[in-house]
Amino acid sequence: MPASATPPQAEGPLLSLNSIEVVYDHVILVLRGVSLDVPRGGIVALLGANGAGKTTTLKAVSNLLRSERGAVTKGTIHLDGQRVDALTPTEVVRRGVIQVMEGRHCFAHLSVEENLLTGAYTGRRSRAELRADLERVYGYFPRLKEKRRTLAGYTSGGEQQMTAVGRALMTRPRLILLDEPSMGLAPQLAEEILDIMRRLNQQQGVSFLLAEQNVAAALRFAHHGYILENGRVVMEGQAAQLANNEDVKEFYLGLGKSGRRSFRDAKHYRRRKRWLA
């Protein structure tokens, strides 16, 4: 969990996507040249509406695309300056990059603690080291310790999200690809989970690439943001700068120049005006 392996090359971004294109089933072009960087120790938000291509971008990095008949057809992905686009998901995890999938995906018939232990599959560790890793996760998520013997399928949505994140932490990641962690959670709980991520970032130096539809929460959490529309990056900038951008306010935060707009207005506007037709 601490940024364990010392990076072979301490300069340049940790993760760098260079105009990647992703195609599903050989024909469906979903990403049309996405470039983005995640600096070391950075928190980067990937924002956009449903279907914009956020999940696809994360899966291109973790290489879970292949198991969905998707492939990166153009562009490159570098981690620590080394190409990683041809690695298997196992190798990507070994290099310290882990995806926490949208919708949590806990192992329902495994206990919470067993769920966490599955995260240690790739790294051979002694019993004592495993114990220490578990305790570290429990330190961040005390609720999981209470529920350690409960089958994950019987825990609440928030606890499942914590289990999913905790399981990812057990891989000792340097970069967590976090896909819509607040989906389906009460705002307060979502905020609580993002707070824990922030502590992980500050205390352990874990970097984050966060995909979110909840733009307001994501921009509060992230340092930097990219806005994805239709498989293209249409805007990027410092999180604070994006949060104050008029267009972002209008289309993603539901705040127009004349104050708060209703959802219907926002939809109406979005139909008329887009960054890219």
């Binding site: 882990i98 995906h105 806990c106 192992f107 599959y121 790739t122 891989t171």
Partner: peptide, 23 residues
């Protein structure tokens, strides 16, 4: 066992298992 647990994990959700690097 580690592999036994991985087997049960795959049985439950093979996508999630894959995302954790379980081959």
């Amino acid at each position: 066992t580690r592999v036994g647990r991985a087997l049960r994990a795959v049985a439950d959700d093979h996508q999630a298992a894959l995302s954790l690097g379980i081959p």
